[in-house]
C-alpha cells in the first residue's frame, strides 16, 4: 500500500515564507555590523565612557527638574490637543461612520502624518515658530494625531454596534445612537489609547528638545556636546527614566483596570 504523501511545499504557509525571507534578508545585511574596519578596543571604550556617567551630578537637579516639568507640560498639552483633533478626524476615517468620499482622503492624510517622525515634525516646527516649547507642542500634536486618529477610528469600527442599532430601533437619531450606543462602548478603549499616547509623548518630548523644541532634550544636547559633562547627562537620563517608569507603571495599571471593568463579570 502506498504511503500517503504531502507535497513538499505544503509546509510553507505565509508565515513560514515571510520568516524565511526575513532570515535571508537579515543574513544578507550582516556587512552592516562590520564597523569602520579599524582595530578599536570597543569594550575598553565602553568601560571608559560608562565610567564618566558615575556618579551622577546632583548639583543640577533643580535645573533638570524644571526642564522635566516643561517636558511634561509639552506632553500634556500636545496630547490634549491631539485627542480633540483626533476625535473629529477619526470620525472621517471610520468605515461605519464616514461616507467613502471622506473615508479614503482622511485615511491618506493620516498615513502621510504618520510617515513623518516626531523629530522631523519638531525640526519643521522650530523653523516656523522658533526654538521654544510651542514648537514641541505643535510637533507632538501633529505626530500624535497620526496615531490617535487611527486608533480611534479602528476602535469605532471594532466596537460592538448592537447597542447603537438597538437605540436606532427605539427611534433614536443617528447622533443619539452614536452618543448613547456606540460611544459608551468605545470610550474606555479610547481612553486607554489616550493614556498610552501621553506616556509616549513624555518620552518623545524628552528628545525633541535636541532640535530646539523645548523640554529636557535641550539639556541632554548641551551636556552631550560639552566636555566632561557625562555625569550631568546621566542625571538627566536618570530623571527621565524615573518619570517614564512611573508613567508606564501607572498607565498599565489604569488600562488593566479599565479592561477588566469593560469585560465585566459575565461568563
Amino acid at each position: 500500500m502506498n504511503k500517503p504523501e504531502l507535497p513538499w511545499h505544503s509546509r510553507f504557509d505565509l508565515l513560514g515564507i515571510t520568516f524565511l525571507l526575513f532570515l535571508a534578508a537579515s543574513l544578507g545585511a550582516l556587512p552592516s555590523i562590520e564597523g569602520s574596519g579599524r582595530d578599536l578596543d570597543y569594550m575598553g571604550n565602553l568601560a571608559r565612557f560608562a565610567a564618566q556617567f558615575f556618579p551622577p551630578d546632583w548639583s543640577i537637579l533643580d535645573r533638570t527638574l524644571s526642564g522635566l516639568l516643561e517636558t511634561i507640560q509639552i506632553a500634556l498639552v500636545s496630547t490634549l490637543l491631539a485627542i480633540l483633533l483626533s476625535f473629529v478626524i477619526s470620525l472621517g476615517a471610520s468605515r461605519n461612520v464616514s461616507p467613502v468620499w471622506l473615508l479614503w482622503p482622511t485615511r491618506m492624510l493620516l498615513n502621510i502624518i504618520r510617515t513623518i517622525p516626531s523629530l522631523l515634525w519638531a525640526l519643521l516646527a522650530v523653523v516656523i515658530v522658533g526654538s521654544n516649547s510651542l514648537a514641541g507642542v505643535i510637533a507632538l500634536t501633529l505626530y500624535s494625531v497620526g496615531y490617535l486618529a487611527k486608533f480611534f477610528s479602528e476602535t469605532f469600527e471594532s466596537t460592538d454596534q448592537n447597542s447603537q442599532n438597538a437605540l436606532k430601533s427605539l427611534r433614536a437619531s443617528p447622533l443619539q445612537a452614536f452618543q448613547y450606543g456606540l460611544w459608551p462602548n468605545a470610550r474606555p478603549i479610547i481612553w486607554s489609547h489616550c493614556l498610552w499616547m501621553l506616556e509616549y509623548n513624555v518620552r518623545s518630548a524628552s528628545i525633541i528638545g535636541y532640535v530646539g523644541a523645548g523640554g529636557i532634550g535641550l539639556h541632554l544636547k548641551l551636556y552631550a556636546e560639552s566636555a566632561d559633562s557625562w555625569n550631568k547627562f546621566s542625571l538627566v537620563l536618570l530623571c527621565i527614566l524615573f518619570i517614564v517608569t512611573m508613567l508606564d507603571f501607572t498607565g498599565e495599571k489604569i488600562r488593566k483596570s479599565i479592561r477588566d471593568k469593560l469585560e465585566g463579570i459575565k461568563k
Partner: peptide, 24 residues
C-alpha cells in the same frame, strides 16, 4: 442578545429608552 451599552451606566442604559421622545 440584550444589545446594551456595556461601558455606560445602568441608569444611562435605561434612559436611552427615551431617546425617541427627545431631540438630539
Amino acid at each position: 442578545d440584550l444589545q446594551l451599552a456595556n461601558g455606560a451606566s445602568t441608569l444611562n442604559n435605561v434612559l436611552s429608552g427615551c431617546l425617541g421622545r427627545h431631540s438630539s
